[in-house]
Amino acid sequence: MALHHSRSLSFPSSSHPAVSNFDESLSRLRSSEAACSSLSSINATINGLRNLYESIDDLLLLPHIQQIVTEECVDDFIKLLDACSSIKDLISLAKQNLRELLSAVRRKDARGINCYLDSRRNSKKMIQKCLKKLRRSSASETSENVSLLKDAESVAISSLESLLSYTLGMKLQERKSSWSLVSKLMQSKKASDDENEFNKVESLLQVNQGNELVNHLKEMDSSIQVVEEELESVFRQLIKTRVSLLNILNH
């Protein structure tokens, strides 16, 4: 699914404030998604995703937009809603695992630390499965007359992929395989300086840096708690938008 913004509507994008708000929300989300290099920056992306679908709710009040809503739109949207639910569960699991590790490190419990490493390996497998499912969704073909809604879905999937990829432990340049060589070279130093927070946990475990690890886990706990709350807010907004789509389709 292309991420390029295209529209086949019969009226100019400036003809209604709701359309302008949608365009602005979409642009901001794309910008924040490109900068996902920490849990804090991911928070901004997830918040942008909620704002985007709030703006879509306003769009869905317009008769011109209601005309492009099809069963295909609703089916694709339900897949996005299911993906968000799965990702919420994965983030909650990651938070739980980190808290259990923090407790184990404080108690110097080797068994508890090994349990975290086992859980982390299992979590990575689940994340990889979820990523594959998301990427299959992004590769689907749809008719051009729903391009506006598909633009939103496409950037939403890309944002959720970024969150999952970061949780998996991938670096920014590993996710953006389509970047040019020059872009990769320009970003390589910055990426190496900003170590993935999940990978840093495993690095600190390997070198037995107890105090630094405790501080790092505390910071991560605070950050991932916010991510979890933001995802819950997005999920509630997606449910609201789904209701709007169904109401339009049924009338």
Rank of each mutant, 00 (worst) to 15 (best):
H216R: 09
K200L: 10
L213T: 00
L217P: 00
S154G: 13
E174W: 07
K150V: 04
S92M: 08
L231R: 15
K132S: 05
K184I: 02
A104D: 09
M186C: 07
I42F: 02
R136E: 05
T70S: 14
C73K: 04
A104F: 06
N208C: 05
K132E: 03
K176M: 10
S165R: 15
I87M: 11
Q173L: 14
D194E: 14
L231P: 05
S244W: 10
L101S: 01
I65E: 05
D109W: 05
H251K: 14
H64D: 06
Q237Y: 06
Q187D: 04
I42A: 12
S159G: 12
D109S: 14
A191W: 11
N21W: 03
L245N: 06
Q173S: 15
G210L: 12
G169S: 07
K133A: 06
S192F: 09
A35N: 10
R7W: 04
N211R: 08
S20F: 07
V207S: 13
L3P: 00
S203K: 15
K79W: 06
S188N: 10
K79A: 12
E54M: 09
E202G: 04
S188C: 03
M170H: 12
E161C: 14
C73I: 03
L80S: 08
V105H: 11
Q237P: 01
I224Y: 06
T142L: 09
Q206T: 08
N196R: 10
V155G: 01
E229V: 02
Q187V: 00
L62R: 15
R111E: 07
K150F: 02
T167C: 14
D194Q: 14
L134I: 13
L168S: 04
K129D: 03
F77G: 02
Y166G: 01
Q67A: 11
S178I: 02
V234Y: 05
H4T: 07
I65M: 15
W179K: 03
K189P: 00
F22M: 06
E33G: 10
E71D: 12
A2R: 13
D76Y: 14
N21D: 03
A35Q: 15
A34T: 06
S183T: 04
V146C: 08
V207D: 05
V155T: 11
D194L: 15
L59K: 07
N97Y: 06
S92W: 02
T167L: 15
K218R: 13
S8M: 13
D58Q: 14
V227E: 03
S140A: 09
P12A: 10
L217W: 04
L60Y: 00
K200T: 06
A44Y: 06
D82S: 10
L204G: 02
S233N: 13
N215C: 09
L101Q: 04
K240A: 08
V74Y: 10
H251L: 05
D193V: 12
Q209L: 11
S147G: 03
E232Q: 12
K95L: 13
